[in-house]
Design a protein around this nucleic acid. Structure first.
Lengths: 346, 346
DNA sequence: CTGAAAGCGCTTACAG
DNA sequence: CTGAAAGCGCTTACAG
């Protein structure tokens, strides 16, 4: 008689062994390396597995293997464009490989708090870690992660002895600034996103492009993540007639800036050129559509999982940490010219 | 001599027992209900725990308790505004309560695929589930979740025997449509988001408001998640002079529509009023700023965790499933009037 | 190829 | 209040 199996206790490896008339270790072997089990028993076990709807308990397996099939993803504010896209990319690949994501949000609070958060996630024995090193908070967090575990960093300043995906943000900042300068602007103002002002940042690229072009780099202005802050800054900059080109640390800030400029009667791009960064889905429908550096965060996430997987395989196959664990993979962005930038009015 | 503890095998409950000169079960009692351990041994154990930097292995605990301290979060495209905000809210509360998030992304693929994905996540014995029931795919997924586990649904059509948070989207759709009609528009066009056209949807509210006002409801137009689709639709609608008011299924689509209208020479709100839904951070800096229904997704996430936690406590304290497990909690949005809507030109 | 035994790190009755 | 024993569901040597 058929029973509603779902509501009962799930079958264990022992149940399968009994039904298939083999020992528990044989079932275990069948599960992990079937070729080590005789054809005949293989069939019997297969039948039992099917009949009992047996699924191995990943927790029991994790207890003995000291490793789960989950990936710890450490990130600050997961609602931001770059973060959410990256996580989505990691998940996509992880899912296909049978891994699950364990998300830990890093808050800007004290270090000790952050350390404990990370610790509690690592206590769950993830197979590996992806750290979204998109700002200062996440960069600080690197100190707390277990360096023995497979780990991939995305972005951030270059660390040693760890595999890292660089999105070449510095180059992107350099490219967009040079582009603006090439259009004939006397200089480019920069409105920066919070956090990472390290040597590999968008800001660093902007500064470097100004230097290389021999133009003065005005003091950068700090925005926060809310586009509203861009709006305020845009209005303020709009009141200075000498401002003809602005490079915003990200598209949302850039859009806010344009709105702020409009509010004080400055047109974009006729009076002021504005460029953003990231290629947010709204950038291309903004009015005027926003010139920006396209960044492929989704791909960075996919790549991060793929790289992590090779390290996990190193561990699984007993190779341990290999020389490959400190690669630097580059995923450069590229300039997309749209309506928000143009030559300055002479 | 101090050793670099971090790189050694972490201390187990046995190590603590030996050092504190008590039995393993006593340490276990100390960990779970210290009041059951004598003052003296409590101190000895505390010292040993500290000295060895002991942290209980959550996996071993999960094996016997058949439950981990993780919450399974099931959602479609986690990069979308509502989804990412909600997840962020869940995480915030979960973190404080010592829970960790296990994210499972639901894809629009075949049901069997989805079932397996959910199964593999449930196999990891989460303490509970939060299902973001924001569209058809997630609504279908409900069939596959284990009904014995604590679970909270956010949004979606009302199910029976499950606690659900309603964001009252139908009411929101009704409110914004009525508002537009109240401004004097002859009717309101609706551009809908993908998925959920159920009885509790934004679309249902729009239709109902039109009916109640006795105005004809033009056939709704389907957009997809990319704001670019809104732009195309906006241009198309802009070519019809009879269109004076549009209600977009979300803000991104609304922004796309405005851009599309502008492209064919229609001004907003002078020629056409456009309203969105959600109150996306960019809505308020869009030019013109977008009238919308504010939805508090973050709060919905927080609330979801809190409700889930009470169910988890029911289970932990042996009460099992109680009558409270089928509550309906309402989290209504509200209209925010901004620049993108106005009275029609007479 | 296969099974009996031991063990992963905990918790839960059960005596005392 | 406390410890010896058993057990959660697996995997890993070890014999044969």
């Amino acid at each position: 008689m058929a029973r509603t199996v779902d509501h009962n206790k799930p079958a264990s490896i022992k149940d399968v062994a009994v039904l298939a008339q083999v020992s528990v270790p044989t079932v275990s072997r069948y599960l992990n390396s079937p070729e080590r089990v005789s054809r005949e028993k293989r069939d019997r076990i297969a039948k039992a597995v099917k009949l009992l709807r047996y699924r191995p308990n990943p927790i029991a397996r994790a207890l003995v293997k000291e490793r789960t099939k989950t990936i710890a993803v450490l990130s600050t504010n997961t609602t931001l464009f770059g973060q959410s896209q990256t996580i989505f990319g990691i998940e996509e690949r992880a899912q296909k490989a049978g891994y699950t994501l364990n998300i830990g949000v890093l808050s800007p609070e004290a270090g000790e708090q952050s350390r404990q958060r990370i610790q509690s996630i690592l206590d769950q024995n993830p197979a590996g870690i992806v750290l979204l090193d998109y700002d200062q908070v996440s960069d600080d967090a690197f100190a707390y992660v277990n360096k023995d575990l497979p780990i991939i960093l995305i972005a951030g300043n270059r660390k040693s002895d760890v595999t890292q995906i660089s999105m070449q943000e510095r180059d992107g900042g350099y490219a967009v600034t040079s582009y603006l300068l090439g259009l004939g602007h006397k200089t480019v103002y920069h409105v920066s996103i919070p956090g990472g002002a390290g040597g590999y940042s968008r800001l660093a690229g902007w500064r470097s492009a100004c230097e290389d072009a021999g133009v003065p780099a005005p003091a950068p202005i700090k925005a926060d993540w809310d586009p509203e802050s861009g709006k305020r800054i845009g209005s303020a900059l709009g009141r200075k007639p000498e401002v003809t080109a602005i490079f915003a640390g990200n598209d949302e800030i850039g859009m806010g800036i344009i709105r702020g400029l409009n509010d004080v009667g400055r047109r974009v791009p006729e009076d002021v050129s504005v460029a953003g960064f990231d290629d947010h889905p709204i950038a291309k429908i903004w009015n005027p559509s926003l010139t920006t550096i396209h960044q492929d965060f989704f791909k960075a996430g996919e790549k991060a999982f793929d790289l992590l997987k090779t390290e996990i395989d190193d561990v699984d196959q007993g190779r341990g940490r290999t020389d490959d664990w400190n690669r630097l993979v580059e995923l450069p962005g590229h300039l997309i010219e749209r309506e928000s930038t143009g030559v300055p009015r002479s």
